[in-house]
């Protein structure tokens, strides 16, 4: 291959890379460009009771989801990292990887059947705040579990947990004094990703929690149902949602950079 051919191929690679970067970055910034023309209406929409209400519900349900994800996810990560049991790989795949790749709308359907008006368990929490949290938890908790488990495994590899035990610490004390402090940043990073994903979760919430203003209506479900009719309000909601994700991402990057 001649030098000229090699340079041309390199140029093609650069063009392809630039095309994808432009597509991704331009899409993100287009919301702000679109907002310029109707800045007054959008600013007004930010403070309407409905937008404020859905913002509150979105943030509150994402926070509750994240707290539950930490409370349940960190122990699960510890078990995955430390214990050997039969079918562990299968259990880990089903609990961590499958929920992340699961079609969220299908998840909403399953929850509606399992915990809806016709629940075989006699529990009906459909179209409530709890339904919002449960729908989000299913897809968001794995972020906490996977990041925490990865760190717990790294700590276990060093063997310092065994040294701590030789010094008299029981397994719970080792968890509290060694694993938790050393994995704190990774747990926080997992929580940030969990929160951002919870803020944007749509499919499960839409079907299982519904879109009831001031009760279960959140930013993504509002956009999904009102995008064609309430354009200005939807754009305002979109800007809030994407900005919240950006904030979480910046937090995640700061935390992981410090962890490195």
């Amino acid at each position: 291959m001649g030098l000229l051919d090699s340079n041309r191929l390199l140029l093609v690679i650069y063009i392809l890379a630039a095309a994808l970067a432009l597509f991704l970055i331009f899409t993100f910034f287009f919301q702000y460009i679109a907002a310029i023309g109707s800045i007054k209406e959008i600013t007004a929409a930010f403070v309407t009771p409905r937008i404020v209400g859905m913002l509150w519900l979105s943030v509150a349900s994402a926070i509750v989801t994240t707290v539950i994800a930490i409370i349940l996810g960190v122990p699960m990560a510890y078990v995955f990292a430390m214990k050997e049991f039969s079918a562990k790989a299968l259990v880990e795949t089903l609990s961590v990887e499958v929920p992340q790749t699961f079609p969220p709308i299908a998840e909403g359907m399953i929850f509606l059947l399992m915990l809806g008006p016709h629940s075989p368990f006699g529990i009906n929490i459909a179209f409530t705040f709890s339904a919002l949290v449960i729908a989000k938890l299913f897809v968001c908790a794995p972020f906490v579990v996977s990041l925490s488990a990865r760190r717990f495994r790294e700590i276990k590899e060093t063997g310092i947990n065994l040294t701590a035990r030789s010094l008299g610490a029981n397994q719970f004390q080792v968890f509290r004094t060694i694993f938790l402090p050393l994995a704190a940043r990774d747990i926080m990073a997992g929580a940030a990703l969990c929160w951002a994903r919870a803020m944007g979760e749509l499919g499960g919430s839409l079907l299982f929690a519904g879109v009831i203003p001031f009760k279960t209506e959140i930013i993504p479900t509002f956009i999904a149902t009102q995008a064609t009719t309430l354009t200005t309000a939807s754009l305002a909601a979109t800007i809030i949602g994407t900005t919240a994700s950006m904030v979480a991402l910046v937090f995640f990057k700061r935390v992981t950079r410090r962890a490195e």
């Binding site: 060093t158 063997g159 310092i160 040294t163 701590a164 035990r165 030789s166 008299g168 610490a169 060694i178």
Partner: peptide, 16 residues
Amino acid sequence: IEERHIGYLPQDYGLF
């Protein structure tokens, strides 16, 4: 392990 009362120094010293 924690009840054996053995002082242990691993190869990499296992410091926290």
